[in-house]
Design a protein around this nucleic acid. Structure first.
Length: 261
DNA sequence: AATACCGCCAACCGCTGCTGT
DNA sequence: GACAGCAGCGGTTGGCGGTAT
């Protein structure tokens, strides 16, 4: 496995194995890849080497395009809003990074995965004794409350988003009530049914809706609550209230929707 | 100033699932 | 149905730069 390391590089230098280049991409390679995609579109990655004259295998080309060269990529730090979505979706979907990424336009699964690992993974190992944990949480709550004030300006926009989501969910509930026989038992069935009656549902909404119906994804257990607070120190309160409403029943779905009826 | 440590990120690898033959 | 090739996914690795000691 490390033959190439010994033969051709120290660390991530450029190496060649069976004619394929590995390691960091250079500007010239990026240019060739961009040119290829502009002319031929995405896909058929194994043809890239032959057509574009790149000494990279298909996987490497695809990864470079998806994670770095795609024009719709959003650069810069993950925003608090994005972070809150990541936490919510991770609670629902686990490590299904590509699914999570689909709800965050401009962000890649790799980016989200890296973000999660560096920001949250190790927080689960933090203070073992309860007092220390409570102290940490209290501190985070205080920080959170301070940040609330700063973020009130953003509240209006988020409330609009919440309103839209609730309207969507109301729509879905109505459709389900008209089709009572279609109660799904798996996330796949939920997705299928939602796709049939409501094609624009995001993975986030699907997961949320599935948890509502089945009560198996985001019931507010203590560990989940801890996870949430670990990440919530810079949440906006609207989204937090939103997540706190994740009681797994149809009735609560109506409660969520009722104010907007 | 030197060193150790840590966070971030690009890139690779192995595996799985899909699709065409 | 079996097989091969390909695309996509998640886990892991390693380099770099910033910060702490």
């Amino acid at each position: 496995m490390f033959r190439e390391v010994m033969e051709g590089k120290m660390g991530w230098g450029i190496i060649e194995e069976e004619g394929w280049r590995k390691g960091p991409w250079i500007a010239e390679e990026d240019k060739l890849l961009i040119q290829y995609v502009e002319e031929h579109g995405e896909g058929r990655w194994n043809s890239v080497a032959r057509i574009a004259g790149l000494k990279r295998n298909g996987k490497s080309c695809r990864l470079r395009w998806v994670n770095y060269l795609r024009p719709d990529l959003k650069r810069g730090q993950i925003t608090p809003q994005e972070e809150s979505i990541i936490i919510e979706l991770h609670a629902l979907w686990g490590n299904r990074w590509s699914t999570i990424a689909r709800s965050l336009p401009g962000r890649t699964d790799n980016e989200i995965k890296n973000y999660w690992r560096t920001h949250f993974k190790k927080k689960t190992k933090t203070p073992s004794d309860a007092a220390e944990k409570a102290k940490t949480r209290l501190l985070k709550r205080q920080q959170f409350q301070q940040l609330q004030q700063q973020q009130q300006l953003k509240q209006h926009q988020l409330q609009q988003q919440q309103l839209q989501f609730n309207l969507d969910m109301k729509n879905i509930m109505n459709m389900f009530e008209e089709n009572v026989h279609m109660v799904p038992s798996t996330s796949e069935e939920t997705q299928e049914i939602l796709n049939n009656i409501y094609p624009n549902t995001t993975p986030y909404e699907e997961g949320y809706f599935y948890s509502m119906l089945n009560g198996n994804a985001s019931a507010p257990t203590s560990s989940n609550e801890e996870t949430l607070w670990d990440g919530l120190w810079n949440f906006d309160d609207v989204l937090y209230n939103f997540s706190a409403a994740s009681v797994p029943s149809k009735a609560s779905m109506h409660n969520l929707v009722a104010p907007f009826c």
